[in-house]
Write a protein that binds this DNA or RNA. Structure first.
Lengths: 227, 227
DNA sequence: CTTCAATGAGCAGTATTTTCATGGTCTACA
DNA sequence: TGTAGACCATGAAAATACTGCTCATTGAAG
């Protein structure tokens, strides 16, 4: 569990770091807002603890910047500024929790547990399902009705995307952007071809069919009640 | 945004409810822990606000019970118990935040925003309705009186436009511009034809009729009281 | 060198979109 | 009350767009 601690006061930072490390957290430190933001954006942390009053860039700005980069890491603001106004400012800039100094270390730990609980849950075996089709994201295996099915990397990525959006129609543009990670329209029919591959492997010998075409709209993965 | 408020003190509950409703939240109330837990488990809320001291089942128990059911709804504990020990107990029972009474209402609102931010971000499920007709923008599905109806892309776009302007007369020019995305008047009657297609699929086998012609003006989608 | 994933091109078949022609309905006005 | 003209509904056919699938080529991995 990696935590980024952005706090300019060396003694406070060291104290928190020590306390967290006793709980087996892996702590990295930043001593100013700008560098802290850079670390948060370039690395993957499980939590950011963020002081508000910081040199070079204040905590609220750091928070906004991180969120602007579309990074969803939990952020806990930790500061001496205890007015309701400050709290609102902090929370509305994208922080998930706001704790006022001085605080009891046990409370900080409890709040850290609450914030990191969700991401911990998801670690482990993520299995996507629809009807009798199962896809294990970590193991990279796919089964339909218990029968193992082997897919290529691209096929797997496509199926995974369809599963994450099951019941929802996804357009070719969505697929190209998310699975192929290009938005450049090559006028190609790769997607059609791959949908075809998946159909052969996943739908051909089974029923009900799960991959459906909506002409002019895209594809859906679902058990169809209609038609 | 639906919030479940579990609080036994009627005056406090009413006060919070009123304040939340002013912010356009949809609030349901429970006055004891057992009933509150039942509501939280049987329904889908965007947030649960949970008092700790409650009749029949205390807040910590409620929280544990909800989490045992594998329900990930954000839970905000709101209580007079302000000791660090109480906070830890609350947060570790599965709550996401813990606010001590008395509190400033603005802080509660900010914390609610922080807790609900994530679920809002997630792919919103936008459903347009009129009478017993429902259209899911993402899933691209249409139901009337629970019966699934399949539409082509153009039909869907037209119906979606009518739904977004339900109760309001839209002219042929509006439709051509918004749905066909051309303003060039081709002197064609495509729109009439498509209205006809929609009528067959949506109004033919149902009642009341929803698509109405206003001669010389255009079309409306609404439940007609008159005529 | 062989194998196989990845992709583009082409074409046939199908579904959708649009046009066209016909007939109906409503309204204004003599 | 009758009728012309504007407006609308609808079936069918034509035009078009879209999709499924095969095949050939490329390029990377082993």
């Amino acid at each position: 569990m990696k935590i980024l601690l952005i706090e300019d006061e060396p003694k406070v930072s060291a104290f928190i770091k020590k306390g967290l490390e006793e709980q087996m957290y892996d702590v990295e430190q930043a001593y100013d807002g700008f560098y802290g933001a850079k670390l948060a954006i370039d690395n993957e942390y499980d939590l950011v603890i963020l002081d508000v009053i910081l040199p070079r860039m204040n905590g609220v700005e750091v928070c906004k910047l991180i969120r602007q980069q579309n990074i969803a890491v939990p952020i806990l603001m930790l500061t001496a500024l205890g007015s309701t106004e400050d709290k609102i400012l902090g929370l509305d800039s994208g922080a998930d929790d706001y704790l006022v100094k001085p605080f009891e270390f046990q409370e900080l730990l409890a709040r850290i547990r609450a914030l990191t609980r969700r991401s911990q849950e998801s670690v482990g075996t993520e299995v996507l399902k629809v009807a009798d089709l199962e896809l294990d994201v970590q193991k990279k295996t796919v089964h339909r009705n218990g029968v193992p099915i082997s897919l290529t990397a691209r096929e797997f990525a496509l199926l995974q995307y369809l599963l994450r959006n099951k019941e929802r129609v996804v357009s070719r543009v969505d697929i190209i952007e998310q699975v192929w990670e290009t938005s450049f329209d090559t006028g190609s029919n790769v997607i059609d071809v791959y949908i075809n591959f998946l159909r052969k492997k996943i739908d051909k010998d089974f029923s009900p069919k799960l991959i459906h075409t909506l002409v002019g709209m895209g594809y859906v993965l679902k058990e169809m009640e209609e038609k």
